[in-house]
Amino acid sequence: MMSPAAMTRRAAPVLACIGLLVVWQVASLALKNDSFPTAIEAIKAIPSILGDKESLVNILASLRRMAMGFGAAVLVSIPLGLLMGRSTAVAAFFNPLLMVIYPVPKAALMPIIMLWLGVGDITKTLVIFLGVSLPVIYHSFEGAKAVEEKMLWSGAAMGLSPPQRLVRIVLPAALPEILTGCRTGLVLALITMITSEMIARQSGAGNILFNALDMGQYDTVFAMIIIVGAMGICLDAIFERVRARLVRWSEPQFDMPLSFS
């Protein structure tokens, strides 16, 4: 049996979603605007999208690109960020480069990348890659920089070589921070995925969304927004579970230290 407090905590996200839908419904009814369907209309449009084979193929293609872009970005960014955090030379080299790229919206680079690589998967995946990389590099860098010197010395005294220290001490010690970056990266992957499909329409969830917009099918537009939002929530929830498992040792669950007796 759950305590009332625990039940409130469990129910809170659901209540928030229902609240949002109610506000939406009321606002839509009040505004009576054709391009703003009611929440109920939008929800009703969801089954037809998810039931349509072509739409599903589009959405899965989106997810595949997102997974590839995200995965590649994480694989490149974590080592780079860790190296930057532990070597001032590496940091001095990459910092200016990253500072130039950071404020540029990755979607703004897309037309150029399209010129080089076409409008296919590679372009879109590359844009996602760029979008995810920066927060992951940044957080890996910060995490690596914050690793206690004495911890590395302890490892060195045990006979760990510098590369071993990077993999076996810096990486795990910086993991909580790295995963914070990955979580931001995951959301950015979703955003860049949709924007990339807006610019280079060919397939994908963004393609459905913007085609529907062009054709004035506003209930489909809003249904897609709900679907994309739900994907974001699900991915984030899955990621959070994995993250919590990986860094259980750092979570402040047992805040009270045991006294020694």
Binding site: K150, M151, W153, A156, A157, P172, A173
Partner: peptide, 20 residues
């Protein structure tokens, strides 16, 4: 010339590996 297992440090900051 460098650290080695013949000399074992114990620091004020403990410097334990928190993930272990």
């Amino acid at each position: 010339t460098g650290p080695g297992p013949d000399r074992g440090p114990v620091f004020q900051e403990f410097a334990l590996f928190p993930w272990k």
